[in-house]
């Protein structure tokens, strides 16, 4: 099997749904950070069958809201001295400020573009959010 050396200091994004790794890699702008990064795809997983993983060496401030929105099943492992020191499962964020825009053409945020869009989670099972301004529902 393909091997990537364990990292000493950094972050491992685990349990990424197979196929989403590339998108997350791009959304987080990892290619531009100048850090050694490995994207592993279709890794065998006992939990998921197949999963993607991203290993990042070095210190990086991750946007957990964005990560949770992209893939609520993801696990973020913070590594120090070769060991996991903190494990975070961001899950679906309750509130999303910025990041996504309302699709309702009659929404005030479509014309008053200085307004930062805001969404509130209304149905976690359906990944459904509601625009805090016009009330329009949106599936992410």
């Amino acid at each position: 099997m393909l091997r990537v050396d364990p990292i000493q200091e950094g972050i491992v994004l685990d349990h990424i749904k197979a196929g989403l790794g590339m998108r997350i890699f791009q959304e987080l702008g990892l290619a531009e950070k100048g850090l050694p990064v490995a994207l592993l795809m279709n890794v065998p997983s006992t939990k998921l069958g197949r999963k993607d993983m991203i290993k990042i060496t070095g210190v990086l401030d991750l946007d957990l809201t964005k990560l949770g929105l992209l893939d609520p099943g993801i696990t973020v492992n913070y590594i120090r001295g070769g060991a996991v020191v903190r494990k975070v499962k961001p899950g679906l964020p309750e509130r999303v400020v910025g990041l996504i825009r309302c699709r309702n053409p009659r929404c005030i945020t479509s014309t008053e573009t200085y307004v930062v869009p805001e969404f509130v989670l209304v149905n976690p099972a359906a990944k459904e959010y509601r625009c805090s301004f016009c009330g329009e529902r949106l599936r992410v």
């Binding site: 009659r106 929404c107 005030i108 479509s110 307004v115 625009c131 805090s132 301004f133 016009c134």
Partner: peptide, 10 residues
């Protein structure tokens, strides 16, 4: 009163 939805919230 405004024609856009969510205007009053804003």
């Amino acid at each position: 009163r405004h024609p856009k939805e969510g205007a009053a919230q804003l």
